[in-house]
């Protein structure tokens, strides 16, 4: 005879009755609860690795800030903190609408959820638009690092190179953040479609919820970026 397996030996076959399952239940999950827990946990782990990703550049930023405090302060003077502050408000508002969208999805409020997702998208795009305007100003002033960097600090010429380094960190950090926003916006468009179609409901709302987690995380990154890049003196 063939080798029996432990499972064969201890569990003579038992057939479970099949119940019809939810259209969005993926075949490899037992039930929607398990699917929901898995996807939420997945997003939390994803956020954890994002923290390390941004953590790396925050660490490098800190090293150079300690090395070149004067240049960092001079660099921050080229940021318009009013615009940055306004943009922060926009982003916080988008987090609010995102949270409302999750609440709406849980309550199967199709129209409300869709509206909130559209608002989130709109606020997110506003943020990106303002950011693009800021970038344009910086590039115009010759503050884009590399060969395009034509700016000279007339008052303290010795700080010029440090300012370039600051602007480099500015562009990398805000650029990576903006990239996350754009990816989020792309996802939002897809979610708006799904929400309008009525995919989400009391049983199945985890995609909106994990989208919310992602969106809030990206906002929090900005909450750190804003003072580090705009408000140091």
């Amino acid at each position: 005879m063939a080798n029996p397996t432990l499972h064969d030996l201890q569990h003579p076959g038992s057939e479970e009755a099949h119940v019809p399952h939810h259209p969005f239940l993926q075949h490899h999950f037992e039930d929607l609860g398990q699917q929901h827990e898995a996807s939420t946990l997945g997003m939390w782990f994803f956020v954890a690795q994002e923290i390390l990703f941004f953590g790396g550049i925050f660490a490098a930023y800190t090293v150079y800030r300690v090395m070149y405090p004067a240049a960092w302060s001079a660099g921050a003077h080229h940021q318009n903190w009013r615009i940055g502050f306004a943009n922060t408000i926009v982003l916080i508002a988008s987090s609010l609408t995102m949270a409302l969208a999750v609440w709406g999805a849980q309550g199967a409020k199709r129209k409300f959820t869709t509206l909130m997702l559209v608002l989130t998208l709109f606020l997110g795009m506003t943020f990106i638009g303002v950011k693009a305007f800021e970038y344009r100003e910086h590039i115009h002033e010759g503050l884009f690092p590399g060969s395009a960097f034509t700016y000279v600090d007339h008052e303290h010429p010795e700080l010029t190179r440090g300012v370039e380094l600051f602007m480099l960190f500015y562009f990398i950090m805000t650029g990576l953040h903006a990239l996350h926003m754009i990816i989020g916006a792309g996802l939002l468009i897809w979610f708006i479609r799904r929400s309008w179609r009525g995919d989400f409901g009391e049983e199945y709302y985890s995609p909106v919820e994990i989208m919310g987690l992602y969106w809030h995380f990206v906002d929090i990154v900005w909450i750190f970026l804003f003072p580090l890049l705009y408000l140091i003196h």
Partner: peptide, 25 residues
């Protein structure tokens, strides 16, 4: 993997930026 790889990712980003723009990271 989850906690170390992103740090390599950002390090390589900085490396690529430095190589492209010739700035002093």
């Amino acid at each position: 993997i989850m906690l170390a790889t992103p740090v390599l990712a950002i390090t390589l980003v900085l490396l690529m930026v430095e190589r492209t723009l010739h700035v002093g990271i």
